[in-house]
Design a binder for these strands. Structure first.
Lengths: 174, 174
DNA sequence: CACAACTTTCAGTATTATCTGAAAATATAG
DNA sequence: CTATATTTTCAGATAATACTGAAAGTTGTG
């Protein structure tokens, strides 16, 4: 199975995996998690933990925890083959479903808490007078409105039953 | 100016600054940079480097480099007062403009490179046969399409001269 | 030019995030 | 129950990132 020289395909895969990892980390996602995700996205068959470790040259512990994390996000699922004890993993390959999952999770993990903070800041300064206070209130209100809209948009995107239609809809924007 | 007990306003500010920093870092933005941004967003008047250092209890070097970075993003601008040698900084306060700036910058810094990688992977595997190769090609093609759409959407959002109208438009989505 | 005000740089240090590897736990087969 | 395969945990190591503080650089002023 392993060869001395890499095939063009495996070179391209490596390139993709590496770059996807870099992109992920620019968006606050653990590099290894993004790499595993990339690897599973472009691999035809489900891989075992050992195969992932081997492909990415990472330790068992690292592979394990990032695979679990990806399952937590819903971006991959585990596959159990009859008669085998090992667990295999495969990625959700539908790009739009993927996108919806990521939007939904980030909303839940980050937008919701942000709204809480903003609401708390509003409460705490309600009724205060003076220029400083008023600038603060105005800015917090504007941010709240913005985040609330983002929230609704993300809900629509993430739960739109017509995720299949989204690509078309967006293309319309031209 | 400084008091023993914090006013409700400065408490709320601190809370906001801290939390905004946390949110930023979940999105791959340096915590301090997000905090400085937050501070300037909710402060009525432009602040000097020393005031920023003092408010956030950070060193001159740290304040300096993050202020420059924020200027690089276009999220703050420097203000020179006549007859004063110090440089002051103020944030863009319009939330929608802010959003557009961030979208434009992230597109430039991350989406464009992502498209390059995908294009390169497509080229490199063009014409290869076999199930593995075909799954790879199909997935890369799907991702390319997706990223291309995202690209166009981000362009529209970031350069739409009617950024004032965006909030309304989005509210329409309901 | 000399001085003071202010900004910039960056080597060294601190902090935080991530990873390793081996031991412990769990599950399955016989 | 025992042996074996596999997964899970986590203390300590490593790597990545961010920060400090002081020295060097720059700019404006008299």
């Amino acid at each position: 199975m392993s060869q001395e020289l890499k095939t063009p395909l495996s070179q391209a895969k490596d390139d993709f995996v590496t770059q996807w990892g870099a992109i992920g980390s620019a968006w606050g996602i653990n590099r290894t998690m993004a790499q595993i995700h990339a690897l599973l996205m472009v691999t035809a068959r489900p891989l075992s933990t050992d195969e992932v470790m081997d492909e990415l040259k990472i330790s068992r512990g690292n592979a394990h925890s990032n695979l679990r994390e990806l399952i937590g996000w819903g971006l991959i699922r585990s596959v159990i083959r009859k008669g085998e004890r090992k667990e295999y993993f495969e990625a959700e390959k539908d790009v739009w479903k993927m996108f919806c999952i990521i939007v939904r999770e980030r909303k839940r993990r980050e937008i919701d808490p942000a709204l809480e903070v903003l609401t708390r800041c509003r409460q705490a300064t309600k009724g205060l007078k003076g220029e400083e206070a008023e600038v603060f209130q105005k800015q917090i209100a504007a941010l709240s409105d913005f985040v609330a809209v983002a929230n609704r948009v993300m809900d629509k995107v993430a739960n739109g039953s017509e995720s299949q239609l989204m690509p078309l809809a967006l293309k319309m924007i031209k």
